[in-house]
């Protein structure tokens, strides 16, 4: 009798071949949906969406200061020039980048006839494009943070 396997590992080989070990169930492998690319993309989409939303609330308010006075606006934007805020800004761009790319993936799953079939592959394409985007942005951003 084989060891306890996850749902996705499938039935034992019909010919009773014992040489082929069933894939080891991973900690992240629960059911067809839970614990796989589908779930993690959803978790990340939700977390990034909420984060961007709260940033947007603050961003509308800080920009509204241009209506108060140039000094008020410059004072608040001045705090954004601190390195800590620079790292926050990096995280923000990373969050928007993931949310935007994965948003396109969601749209393709919904409207493209082959979308659901390729959703896992599309998740890894999203990750690859996201890494490329950040490889372009982060070095530049670090130069800006540490230049003076």
């Amino acid at each position: 009798m084989a060891e306890q396997t996850g749902v996705l590992t499938g039935p034992p080989a019909p010919n009773g071949d014992t040489k082929v070990a069933p894939p080891r169930p991973s900690r992240f492998q629960g059911t067809l949906y839970r614990g796989r690319e589908g779930m993690w993309s959803w978790v990340l989409h939700r977390i990034t969406g909420v984060s961007i939303y709260f940033f947007l609330l603050v961003h509308i308010l800080d920009t509204a200061l241009v209506r108060v006075s140039p000094q008020a606006y410059n004072a608040v934007i001045g705090t954004y020039k601190h390195p800590i805020m620079g790292f926050g800004e990096t995280a923000l761009v990373a969050a928007i980048g993931f949310h935007a790319l994965n948003g396109l993936r969601i749209i393709l799953i919904d409207f493209w006839s082959q979308g659901t079939k390729h959703q896992r592959l599309m998740f890894w394409i999203v990750i690859a494009l996201w890494v490329i985007l950040l490889a372009g942005f982060v070095p530049r951003q670090m130069m800006n943070i540490f230049s003076e």
Partner: peptide, 12 residues
């Protein structure tokens, strides 16, 4: 300079 270039005059 990224965000360092942003001020009231930039928005104006």
């Amino acid at each position: 300079g990224g965000v360092k270039a942003i001020d009231f005059a930039f928005v104006g």
